[in-house]
Design a protein around this nucleic acid. Structure first.
Lengths: 201, 201
DNA sequence: ACATTGTTACCGAACGATCGCTAGAGCGGG
DNA sequence: CCCGCTCTAGCGATCGTTCGGTAACAATGT
């Protein structure tokens, strides 16, 4: 909680301090388990002050999730553009970025992955649309790989689902002080993802 | 909520009606988002009656999670014993059972996967121990496959993590009225799991 | 030069609603 | 007549949210 405040003070506006505290708290107890008073305490301000920056608790959650998903898409799309033209290279680049996001932005990713059910209808529609966009990034690459004979999977759709979910789950168990650095884990998972689509040769 | 009650009345005791309602409610709004009054309404009894069967809301959650994880271990262990002796067969049998659990027992699996943070210390220790047991079931098979030269993965541990998480995630997106029956999905995921450990030949 | 105004950021106090949980009484079957 | 189970009623605490006000500061009017 104090760490969240320090980081936010160093990097951003009053809005950011609140978001950082909210993310930290929701990681420990979830959206409904986190009170506005918890968020205020972590941001070192009062509850009333939060309402100067956000209209409601719900708006805080939506802000967190939309930002996180937007950044995830930006990171994976960027990695895709920077990679070579071969489907195998592209898939590995996507997976590396996907895992990097779920380690370096672990707390945001965790909230983004687990709190969809806590969004109201409007927020849920927004987030689902962003998720679809993310899934299409992977799907297009794998389907092209199948068409061009680089991948031999019989079920590209299921492979993509598995790949995305596997990478997403990283945020549930990875620890910064564990044995694997984000880059190392990303490399291994890129390898796993490629194996799942059964590359020819 | 009504469905939960009907199912429970048909199958079990007063305790079971409460558990079914709790699982259904927690799937929609999570542990902290579900009130004892929500659970009571779904079970068609009063709040006070719940406390005749359970000491607290926390005990309900622990009961749900321990039961679910226990059953998951039983299903996968049974599948393992019924399978052939080859590591590839065993891994596929494990994954089929793992996916079958996360489809046919979707709601329980969902609570078991997302509400660890809502457990108190005692409950968390119990659940973590069961999870370890589950992971070892997969790990032993994959490590034996590597030792005997059937699998060529360089990173068995990471492959096992990916396999387990991929199967677990099924409970977050699968729908009973979707295109895939549990058996079909289980078959495809067993195939994916095998590919991830890079079987020789 | 000083007073006035508007804006931004924050705060203490409190609103009605709902939270987990409990006391005590009612009721049907052995 | 007690026992298993349910009920009504309500406890104190906490929930998301709102209200009225204060302090700081820049822009403006005179």
């Amino acid at each position: 909680m104090c760490a969240a405040k320090v980081a936010a003070v160093a990097t951003g506006t009053g809005r950011q301090v609140i978001l950082d505290s909210a993310v930290a708290n929701m990681n420990e107890r979830g959206y409904h388990g986190t009170s506005m008073r918890d968020i205020a305490r972590g941001a070192d301000i009062t509850v009333a002050s939060i309402y100067h920056h956000f209209a409601s608790k719900q708006e805080i959650l939506q802000d967190i999730m939309v930002r996180a998903l937007h950044d995830a898409i930006a990171m994976t799309r960027g990695a895709l553009l920077r990679s070579g033209g071969a489907p195998a290279d592209q898939l590995q680049a996507l997976m590396r970025a996907w895992v990097m996001f779920h380690t370096t932005r672990q707390l945001d990713a965790m909230v983004g992955a687990t709190e969809i059910r806590s969004l109201d209808d409007a927020g849920r529609r927004l987030v689902v649309a962003l998720r679809d966009e993310q899934e299409h990034l992977f799907r297009d690459v794998v389907e092209r790989g199948v068409e061009e004979g680089d991948f031999a999977t019989e079920f590209p759709r299921d492979a993509v689902r598995g790949i995305i979910n596997m990478g997403q789950s990283v945020c549930t168990w990875w620890h910064a002080d564990g044995p694997l650095k984000p880059e190392e884990l990303a490399e291994r998972y890129a390898d796993l993802a490629l194996a799942m689509v059964k590359p020819t040769v």
